[in-house]
Amino acid sequence: MGIAGKNGSGKTTLARLLNGLLLPSAGSVMVNGMDTRQRRHIREIRRQVAMVFQNPDNQLVSPVIEEEIAFGPENLNLPLREIEIRVEEALQIVGLEELRHKSPHMLSGGQKQRVAIAAALAMRPACLVLDEPTSMLDQTCRQGILDYLRELNNRQGITIILISHNMEDLAGAGRIIVLQEGSIVRDAPPWEIFNQAGQTLDLKPPNIVRLAQMLRKRGCLLDERISTLEQMENSICRLLKSTT
């Protein structure tokens, strides 16, 4: 699931409400039936809703990767065996086993962000909230992180909430919520958002969607629901098959 919106639209505030970093001044936030305002639920809520932040440098606590990942489970007061198992598992998922004894400042931005994701995963969350995790990374790292997230979603069944102002990041989402000045203005699958994006929402749709739009204008019978390269491919293949 993706959350989009311009600067100051309340994306980060929403993310912080989700795991009780901020408490609502009116109304309430319920996470799996638990109210974030109740102190005794807060630990369980934070375990279930893990967060990854924008700046990869400012969210790593420990001088050693392995211990960084153990930080969350340690705060949950788990026994040593269990912590070791989880660290191992998390390292494997993000593929950083060989860097386990390294120090964060020796890693690249993308690797740091992967460590942050692993650290979040070590708490075995039900849901992973990422607040603009790719905005400080270069293009290849960005794609790498997005691929990891998709895999996590498919394999581990963890709900991914990706917050971004970049529509390219959100193209693979199952559902996008658009925020504007603190309220939800759209909640729809990506293709629908993207096709309206240019006119009403003041967001720039991904390149692939714009290409599809242009092709449609030229008279190609492309599917309206295209938001990723893969879908584009399938759609064109189908088109070719139907014409021959």
């Binding site: 893990a50 440098d57 969210q59 705060n75 007061n77 040593l80 708490m123």
Partner: peptide, 27 residues
């Protein structure tokens, strides 16, 4: 200072409460 603020938020979101590290010392 900015870093410190960010880090504090990140630590809090990972259940750090400033209390004793039971697992760390007990282990």
């Amino acid at each position: 200072l900015q870093r410190a603020t960010d880090l504090a938020v990140a630590m809090e979101s990972r259940c750090y409460t400033g209390g004793p590290h039971h697992s760390r010392t007990k282990n």
